[in-house]
């Protein structure tokens, strides 16, 4: 069973004073997120990531299509007992303290007072809000609010966690912590659905990705199944420096000495590196490793977005003709 399933989900907004301008924020997006997956929901700003999450949380009603979480339609209030949500740029009632707020959230789940206290304390410990838990939220920094947001999203021990831009506005340390947290959730077997426009973060933690551009799904799948192109080969050789330079220097883009008697060579995709490897071996130079260097998620993403844009333009031209 999928944890999250989108079926032809679409949302159109009418903007402007007379609501005459039509903005298609989400256009027939279908997506299956298996249980236990960590999905990076990626796309540039304005691609429709937040709209998707708000549709999943029923903050916004779909124009057409539908969505299911854990096999139940999103309108089902009961399913929200099993999910957690961290909104984008989260804010809370700023007159209460972190502790009080989490206890309030516990109240919304219908926990007893003792249970609320226990879960609030546990949650705050987990995100590292220590002595500050009795301070008013008004005095919190952006990063601390984000931690409280994560704590409230995890308060009910959710099976699926939705995080909307969890790393935006955080310093490098904070981003690292969020990354570790997502990995920990993955370890615990929870499904994580998180949106981001920072692709490096996604690459480090995701098992799956879905790429969205202008409301349309451009690509989706397991990270390993993506057709990441080979951009170059990395060859590590052990042997005397002069001979490595002599053989590989012409073919390689560059040669670096990585340790005593060990050199790394960056080789182009064409011609195939096997010939060079054979030549090196003949000269008595040991080949330690030979790896393809694939494009990064960011390269992939940019390529797919560009392809989608090109396809759209050619479609338009076809229509014009």
């Amino acid at each position: 069973m999928s944890a999250v399933r989108l079926r032809e989900l679409s949302k159109t907004f009418h903007t402007g004073f007379w609501r005459t301008r039509v903005h298609r924020a989400l256009d027939a997006v279908s997506l299956d997120v298996p249980r236990g997956a960590v999905l990076g929901y990626l796309g540039p700003n304005g691609a429709g990531k937040t709209t998707t999450l708000r549709l999943l949380m029923q903050l916004v009603h779909p124009t057409s299509g539908g969505a299911e979480i854990l096999g139940r339609p999103v309108g089902d209030v009961g399913v929200r007992r099993r999910i957690g949500f961290l909104p984008e740029a989260v804010r809370f009632h700023d007159t209460c303290t972190a502790e009080e707020f989490l206890e309030y959230v516990g109240g919304l789940f219908g926990y007893t007072v003792a249970e609320r206290r226990r879960r609030a304390a546990l949650g705050l410990d987990r995100v590292g809000i220590g002595a500050d838990r009795r301070r008013r939220l008004r005095t919190y920094s952006r990063g601390m609010l984000q931690r409280v947001g994560i704590a409230q999203a995890l308060l009910n021990d959710p099976e699926v966690v939705f995080l909307d831009e969890p790393m935006t506005g955080l310093d490098p340390l904070g981003r690292r912590e969020v990354r570790d947290l997502v990995l920990a959730l993955r370890e615990e077997g929870r499904t994580v659905f998180f949106s981001s426009h920072i692709l490096n973060d996604a690459e480090a933690v995701c098992s799956h990705v879905a790429i969205l551009n202008r409301g349309r799904l451009v690509a989706s799948g397991r990270v390993g199944d993506l057709d990441l192109r080979v951009r170059s080969w990395e060859l590590v050789a052990a042997g005397p420096g002069e001979s490595v330079q002599a053989v590989g220097g012409a073919a390689a883009r560059w040669v670096t000495r990585i340790a005593d008697g060990r050199y790394a060579l960056e080789l182009p995709v064409e011609p195939s590196p096997e010939a060079l490897a054979a030549e090196l071996a003949q000269r008595g130079i040991q080949i330690v490793s030979l790896h393809p260097r694939r494009e990064t998620l960011e390269d992939y993403f940019l390529r797919r977005v560009a392809e989608a844009a090109a396809a759209a333009i050619s479609d338009d031209e076809a229509e014009c003709a």
Binding site: Q58, H61, P62, T63, S64, G66, P73, V74, G75, V77
Partner: peptide, 8 residues
């Protein structure tokens, strides 16, 4: 209210 969702 619970029905919600699309086309309700």
């Amino acid at each position: 209210f619970e029905r919600g969702g699309a086309g309700s």
